[in-house]
């Protein structure tokens, strides 16, 4: 059994210390996933806390240790979306507390666009884009995480990318483009 899976197996069997360490390994990615959905630190921390509690409560139900990362990510996304639904928040651009510095070249306008554009996307596009291009999950893994068919993931990836490009450059992208993800 691969190295990390054995630790996850131990956590599944109830070892709190090991689970704590595994969660600390995942914390950056989980928090960022929460933040990209909630758009402010306070709500992202709440989502993170709820995610941790759900992981502690449910770790015994994880059946394949190899899926620990995808499993905790799914919990984090579900908690985020549930929180958004429950709060029914309408978050205006002014209320974002998104980071104001992204180290890229370009004009001030371009930097602002780039800072906001991912946050502006619909959650269904945001989730798949972040899972694919930040977490490096495969299409199949993303389908498992989001509980949807692989075709839906591919479609949302394609549309999400197209929307990003459209928002950034105002250029219409042909949605029938056949990309190999």
């Amino acid at each position: 059994m691969p190295k990390k899976e054995r630790l996850v197996k131990k956590a599944i069997k109830g070892d709190q210390n090991t689970l704590q360490l595994l969660l600390k390994e995942e914390k950056d990615k989980l928090y960022k996933m929460a933040f990209i959905h909630m758009k402010n630190e306070h709500d992202a921390l709440e989502v993170f806390q709820q995610t941790v509690l759900e992981v502690i409560e449910s770790i015994h139900q994880l059946r394949n240790p190899a899926y620990f990362s995808t499993w905790v990510t799914r919990i984090c996304i579900n908690v985020s979306l549930k929180e958004i639904r429950n709060n029914k928040k309408i978050v205006t651009m002014e209320s974002y507390s998104i980071p104001d510095v992204i180290e890229i070249s370009g004009s001030i306008e371009e930097k602002m666009d780039l800072t906001n554009v991912l946050y502006e996307l619909d959650d269904k596009y945001k989730s798949v884009l972040v899972l694919r291009f930040f977490h490096d999950f495969t299409v199949k893994q993303i389908a498992d995480i989001l509980g949807c068919p692989e075709g839906t993931v591919k479609t949302n990836l394609h549309r999400g990318l197209s929307l990003l490009k459209t928002k950034l450059k105002g250029v219409y992208m042909d949605e029938r483009r056949n990309e190999n993800y």
């Binding site: 928090y31 960022k32 933040f35 990209i36 998104i98 980071p99 510095v101 992204i102 180290e103 890229i104 780039l114 800072t115 554009v117 991912l118 946050y119 884009l129 972040v130 291009f133 930040f134 990003l164 950034l168």
Partner: peptide, 9 residues
């Protein structure tokens, strides 16, 4: 851009 945005959080 996705990577940069996420890294900047």
């Amino acid at each position: 851009i996705i990577e940069d945005t996420m890294e900047a959080i």
